[in-house]
Simulated assay, not measured.
Amino acid sequence: MSDIPAELRFAESHEWARLETDGTVTVGISDYAQEALGDVVYVELTEVGTAFGAADQAGVVESVKAASDIYSPIAGEVVAVNNALTDNPELLNSDPYGAWIFKLKPSNLADLDKLLDAAGYRAAIGA
């Protein structure tokens, strides 16, 4: 069964978002997504300074099974990327909620309220 932390918000496309104390939003993929992908072998990271709208493609995760687009769960500007994933993409498998992909300065924090809470995400994936 997939781990679904209560403090996170989730996009239906399986990205998670966590509001940080500095007002940024950290983004990664859910435990459910990494399980479905299988062994992750490559992560295409976006560039710092890139602006995304909610649901814009923000990168790619490749596994031994498939390649899957990563979408920005909310609108904002990328302020950091997790370069550790370049050499160690398997971190998404071993620690999906610790191995974040990018951080955003949100355009509108209220966008987080449009995402699923843990219970809503659990229902969406049938867990």
Rank of each mutant, 00 (worst) to 15 (best):
Val79Pro: 09
Tyr71Arg: 07
Pro106Glu: 08
Gly76Leu: 07
Glu7Phe: 07
Arg122Pro: 02
Asp39His: 00
Leu8Thr: 02
Ala84Pro: 02
Tyr121Pro: 05
Ala123Lys: 15
Asn88Ile: 01
Val43Tyr: 06
Val60Tyr: 03
Lys114Glu: 13
Ala36Asp: 01
Tyr97Asp: 08
Leu92Ser: 02
Ala110Lys: 12
Leu104Ala: 09
Ser94Arg: 00
Glu62Asp: 14
Asn108Pro: 03
Asp95Asn: 13
Glu35Ala: 14
Tyr32Ala: 11
Thr26Ile: 09
Glu90Met: 04
Ala11Cys: 05
Ala17Ser: 09
Ile29Arg: 00
Ser13Asp: 14
Gln57Pro: 12
Ser2Lys: 13
Ile74Trp: 04
Ala123Cys: 04
Glu47Ser: 15
Ala6Pro: 03
Glu47Tyr: 06
Ile74Leu: 15
Val78Asn: 12
Ala80Leu: 06
Leu45Asp: 04
Gly53Glu: 15
Leu104Tyr: 05
Tyr121Asp: 07
Ala75Glu: 10
Thr24Tyr: 01
Thr24Ser: 15
Gly38Arg: 03
Leu109Met: 10
Asn82His: 12
Lys103Ser: 13
Ala119Lys: 15
Leu85Gly: 05
Ala51Ile: 04
Glu15Pro: 08
Met1Asn: 07
Ala118Asp: 14
Ala36Phe: 05
Lys65Val: 09
Leu116Met: 15
Ala123Gly: 10
Glu47Leu: 11
Thr86His: 06
Lys103Glu: 13
Tyr71Asn: 04
Pro96His: 03
Asp3His: 13
Asp111Val: 01
Ser72Phe: 01
Glu44Pro: 02
Ala51Thr: 14
Ala17Met: 07
Tyr97Lys: 00
Asp3Gln: 13
Trp16Ala: 08
Ser30Ala: 02
Val27Cys: 06
Tyr32Thr: 04
Tyr42Lys: 11
Leu92Pro: 03
His14Gly: 05
Val40Ile: 13
Asp69Cys: 02
Glu90Ser: 13
Thr86Val: 14
Gly76Gln: 05
Thr50Ala: 09
Phe10Ser: 08
